[in-house]
Amino acid sequence: MQVTWGNVTVTFSNPEEAKKYAEKVARKLGGQVELHNGQFRIK
């Protein structure tokens, strides 16, 4: 499962870890987490 924002992509084998990481990054950037085609995207 991947977490992407800007031109950065981070890949996780565990979807739960990916979700936690995406939420943490979104909080830092003041963005929203979207699940899109099996990727968490931060907008």
Rank of each mutant, 00 (worst) to 15 (best):
K19I: 08
I42P: 02
G6A: 07
E17C: 15
H36V: 15
T4L: 10
F12C: 09
V8M: 11
K20P: 02
P15S: 12
K28R: 14
F40M: 05
T11D: 06
T9K: 06
A22Y: 02
G6E: 06
A22P: 00
M1R: 10
P15A: 13
V3S: 00
K19R: 15
A22H: 00
L35N: 06
K43H: 11
K28N: 07
T9W: 05
Q39P: 00
L29P: 00
G38W: 03
Q2C: 14
N7F: 08
G31T: 06
Y21C: 13
Q2S: 14
T9G: 02
A18P: 00
T11Y: 14
P15N: 08
Q32V: 15
T9L: 07
Q2L: 09
L35I: 13
L29S: 06
F12P: 00
M1T: 15
V8T: 11
K43I: 15
E17D: 13
E23M: 11
T4S: 13
K24R: 13
Q32N: 08
T4E: 04
V8Y: 13
G38H: 15
P15H: 13
R27G: 07
R27Y: 08
T11G: 06
G31A: 10
V25M: 14
A18Y: 02
G38C: 13
P15F: 15
R41V: 15
N14V: 06
K24D: 12
F12Y: 03
E34Y: 12
Q32E: 12
E16Q: 11
Y21R: 01
V3M: 03
K20E: 12
P15R: 12
W5A: 03
G30R: 08
H36S: 10
G38K: 05
H36T: 10
V8L: 08
G38N: 08
N37P: 04
R41C: 14
Y21W: 09
V3T: 01
A26F: 02
Y21G: 00
A18K: 00
E16G: 09
F12V: 02
A18M: 02
M1L: 12
L35K: 06
E17K: 11
N37R: 05
K43G: 06
Q39R: 08
A26P: 00
V3E: 00
V8E: 05
E17L: 13
E16T: 12
A22R: 01
K28P: 01
K28L: 14
G38L: 04
N14E: 07
K43N: 10
N37H: 07
V33F: 05
K43R: 14
V8F: 12
H36F: 12
K43Y: 13
N37C: 15
T4R: 12
S13Y: 08
V10E: 04
E34S: 07
K20V: 11
E16R: 10
L35P: 03
N7W: 08
I42S: 01
A18S: 02
V8P: 01
A22W: 02
T11P: 04
A18L: 02
N37Q: 07
E17P: 02
F12T: 00
G6Q: 06
L29N: 04
H36D: 09
V3D: 00
K24F: 15
V33K: 02
V10R: 11
N37K: 07
K24G: 08
G6R: 07
G30Y: 05
V3F: 06
N37Y: 04
Q2R: 11
R41S: 06
Y21M: 04
S13I: 09
V3Y: 02
G38T: 03
K28I: 15
M1C: 15
N14S: 13
V25T: 05
Q39V: 14
G6S: 06
A22L: 04
Q39C: 11
T9F: 05
A26N: 02
S13L: 10
G30N: 10
R27M: 10
L29W: 09
Q2I: 13
G31F: 07
K43F: 14
T11C: 15
W5C: 14
P15C: 15
K19P: 00
S13A: 12
G31I: 06
A18Q: 01
E17R: 10
K43W: 11
Y21I: 03
Q2V: 13
E34C: 14
V25N: 01
V10I: 14
G31N: 03
W5I: 10
V10D: 01
L35V: 13
V25I: 14
S13E: 11
A26M: 03
R41E: 07
R27S: 08
F40T: 01
L29T: 11
K20Q: 12
K28C: 15
F12K: 02
I42C: 05
I42L: 03
Q32M: 12
E34G: 04
K24P: 00
T4N: 07
V3P: 00
T4Q: 09
K19L: 14
R27N: 08
F40W: 15
S13N: 12
N14I: 06
A22T: 02
K43C: 15
G6Y: 09
I42R: 01
V33E: 00
E17Q: 12
T9P: 01
K28G: 06
A26R: 03
P15E: 09
E17H: 11
V10C: 15
A18N: 00
G38M: 04
G31D: 02
R41F: 15
G38D: 05
W5N: 03
V33N: 01
V8R: 09
S13T: 13
F12H: 01
K28T: 09
V3N: 00
E23N: 08
K19A: 09
K19C: 13
A26S: 04
W5Q: 02
N7E: 08
S13M: 10
K19Q: 10
G30S: 06
Y21L: 05
E16H: 11
F40V: 04
G38P: 01
K20S: 10
F12N: 00
Q39F: 07
N7V: 08
T11I: 11
N7C: 15
R41N: 08
T4A: 09
F12M: 03
E16L: 12
G30P: 02
E23V: 08
E34D: 06
V8K: 10
A22Q: 00
R27F: 08
Q2M: 11
M1A: 10
V33A: 05
Y21S: 01
V10A: 06
G31P: 01
N7I: 08
